[in-house]
């Protein structure tokens, strides 16, 4: 049995469209629902269309004509879909607006009078939060900030094919944190070299570990490595043996 797919914002609309295009009254239309639509966020982003599959009954007047119509209808449908998806992109103003809306909503529930400004570069979108109670927004060890960044990134990337990286900063907190981590990295590498024993740093997330790795990349006296899995993943700074020996020779 021939099966024709129709799309619409809701199942009802898809049925209506099908009945108009096939010129079959709605009551006589035989169909299966492929997917129920969802409106997505704000009815703009990530909306999925409802799809139905119309089964044509055999006794159709002038089957050839209808099949022809099907083909042309199919072509029209494709063109329509393309133009619609273009419209969707324009109307929602892309991931930046979405991210701003989501982030603003989260912030508003935590503190009042905080605003979000946006900078965009080729690699990532940077959301900068200012005002409000920044201490609560950052949280203990920056965990609230991290949680916000993670959720916003996840929500944006759910709606777009391409992977978009984002960064959420509050009044220069990230820079301060990076400087602090680099200081700790240098201090611990000195310790490793002095004692000749590996030093571990626990409780760092992936970005933080990366900062430490990069900070010690050019230090020939130590080697850094991440060990363990998931929550227990640690960063270990090993003193280099060759460096140790050289040092012993010299003394």
């Amino acid at each position: 049995m021939p099966c024709l797919e129709f799309e619409g914002k809701s199942v009802e609309k898809a049925i209506k469209k099908a009945s108009e295009e096939l010129r079959i009254p709605i009551e006589k239309l035989k169909y299966d629902v492929i997917s129920y639509g969802s409106t997505g966020i704000f009815g703009l982003v990530g909306s999925k269309k409802a799809r139905i599959c119309v089964t044509l009954r055999e006794p159709i007047p002038k089957p050839e004509a209808i099949i022809k119509e099907e083909v042309s209808a199919g072509e029209n449908k494709e063109i329509q879909i393309i133009s619609e998806s273009e419209q969707k992109q324009n109307a929602s103003e892309g991931p930046i607006e979405l991210g701003r809306n989501v982030l603003q909503r989260i912030i508003d529930s935590i503190t009042s009078d905080a605003t979000v400004s946006i900078q965009e570069n080729s690699e990532r979108i940077l959301f900068n939060i200012s005002g409000g109670n920044s201490a609560i927004l950052i949280g203990k060890r920056g965990q609230t900030l991290e949680a916000m960044q993670y959720l916003v990134e996840k929500i944006i990337n759910k709606n777009y094919e391409q992977r978009i990286r984002i960064l959420v900063d509050i009044e220069g907190y990230l820079e301060t944190k990076e400087a602090g981590l680099e200081r700790i990295a240098v201090r611990l590498s000195e310790k490793a070299k002095r004692t000749g024993k590996p030093v571990t740093i626990g409780q760092l997330n992936a970005q933080d570990r990366r900062i430490v790795h990069l900070a010690l990349k050019d230090d020939s006296g130590v080697r850094t490595q991440s060990i363990g899995d998931g929550f227990y993943r640690k960063l270990v700074i090993f003193p280099q043996k060759s460096y140790q020996r050289k040092k012993e020779k010299n003394t």
């Binding site: 989260i106 935590i110 503190t111 927004l137 949280g139 609230t144 949680a147 993670y150 959720l151």
Partner: peptide, 21 residues
């Protein structure tokens, strides 16, 4: 829930920050 419960953890963190208000 997310990988290793990360999404759930993020939601809980935000929730506790919001309820501190």
């Amino acid at each position: 829930i997310g990988k290793q419960g990360r999404t759930a953890r993020a939601m809980r963190t935000i929730l506790s920050a919001a309820s501190a208000k």
